[in-house]
């Protein structure tokens, strides 16, 4: 009886610890991404977690961006997953910018965006080749134009 209770307590402590570690790891990704963004002022972070799929699943976030502001979009992948995150910036239906240039196969940890139109935009995150992944995207401000 006592052994079972002890085992139950240990399992609960273990799970609580595991949950804490998981939560911290997302926070750590935000901190890493903040460093990747450099001098740019933090505005918001986006947590992305997607299962594997074909076509690759996406996670979208609507944002309002302002004219005459230079924004920086940074991305950071969790080491625990295979997936490499891609950010695509859209307005109503046009892709405007991306962290992964298909033509060159180059992947960028951050890209800058000089905004000339105040309005709604969409950040669309996915993982290359539809792999499962965990990542953080950061929106920050480089400065005004």
């Amino acid at each position: 009886m006592k052994k079972i209770l002890l085992a139950l307590s240990l399992v609960m402590i273990g799970i609580a610890y595991h949950n804490n570690v998981k939560a911290q790891s997302e926070e750590e990704l935000v901190q890493i991404c903040t460093m990747v963004a450099g001098d740019a002022e933090y505005l918001k972070d986006f947590r992305i977690k997607l299962d594997a799929g074909d076509p690759p699943p996406v996670q979208r976030f609507p944002v309002v961006l302002k004219k005459d502001v230079k924004y920086r979009f940074s991305v950071c992948n969790s080491k625990d997953y295979e997936g490499k995150v891609i950010l695509q910036l859209f307005d109503n239906n046009r892709q405007l910018a991306t962290t992964y240039i298909v033509a060159t196969g180059k992947d960028y940890p951050y890209i800058d965006w000089v905004c000339t139109k105040t309005g709604a935009y969409h950040l669309v995150y996915s993982f290359r080749d539809g792999k499962a992944g965990l990542a953080v995207g950061l929106l920050s401000m480089v400065g005004t134009m």
Partner: peptide
């Protein structure tokens, strides 16, 4: 090594 996308829309 820094990529900048410059919007050319006019408001």
């Amino acid at each position: 090594g820094v990529v900048t996308f410059k919007q050319t829309d006019k408001q």
